[in-house]
Design a protein around this nucleic acid. Structure first.
Lengths: 149, 149
DNA sequence: TATTGTTATACTCTATAACTATA
DNA sequence: TATAGTTATAGAGTATAACAATA
């Protein structure tokens, strides 16, 4: 017979379970979508950040999408070979290297990004926009709390 | 200049981003926790299901935690070698194999499960129990909608 | 001393597909 | 024909730690 937990502990475990399941279900589809464009899901997310920001230090990419420094180097290498971004050394701090999206990268995303957004949106159609906004606020608070310990 | 999206599409993309970040942040800690007990995170989740259910067909484990059939075989093999569960063929349908938790598996989880639950709970302390319940309902609906297309 | 980024290793998980045995 | 589970392969991602260059 399993040990009985507190209500509060039970709730947190349950949240972890449904969070994982929702994440996996959406991610599986997002990975397939990225693959159609010849990109892994990490590559897609990195380009998505650059498409919005234009140029950003490598380390900040890791903070934004929570991947390790090893994974950053690995994925930036692949994207640079595909000519979708380039490395640009910083002048102010010579330890820092920026990733900058190329014209080819911008053209690719102009083409595929609206389609991708529409796909993600259609995956979430079971939840209204108002509910999505509630979920965003709660998950933001949750994620921030975890990272800040 | 990035293409401007609908409000509704923007919201869904944002939800995907914060969902991913919250998931990764919590999972990173949960993986470390499982590792302390000599288990990978998949192994831990499978045992967690069996600890609650006792005995369950292999395929239903895949449905519960969204892992592929290949991963099920792989992880069940490892857990069986550690003597934490055993395979039990079904009498009714001879295609079906149950996974059943062993005494050793139950003893292990009696020991580590409350501690694990407390750790997950403490990770989520930035969000009240009421908010967690709201998040659970929304994520349940979201995940279900994705899986049912 | 601390930070940014790179490199290298080993491990976990995944996707995919072919396969068997049953139904 | 469809389902449950296994096997095998290749690839993606990770943790980890050591490292060089710079602050």
């Amino acid at each position: 017979m399993p040990i009985q937990l507190d209500d509060a502990h039970e709730t947190s475990l349950k949240l972890f379970v449904v969070l994982s399941k929702a994440y996996k279900a959406i991610t599986e589809q997002a990975v397939k979508d990225a693959k159609q464009y010849g990109l892994s899901s990490s590559e897609f997310m990195i380009l998505e950040v650059l498409y919005a920001k234009g140029k950003i230090p490598l380390q900040q990419i890791g903070e934004k999408i929570l991947i390790t420094s090893g994974s950053i180097t690995y994925n930036i290498d692949k994207l640079e070979k595909k000519d979708l971004l380039r490395r640009v050394p910083s002048n102010e701090d010579r330890r820092v290297i920026y990733a900058e999206i190329t014209d080819a990268g911008n053209e690719l995303f102009n083409r595929i990004f609206p389609e991708h957004a529409a796909k993600i949106h259609s995956l979430m159609k079971a939840v209204t926009q108002e509910e999505q906004q509630v979920a965003i606020e709660l998950l933001k608070k949750l994620g921030k709390g975890v990272l800040e310990g």
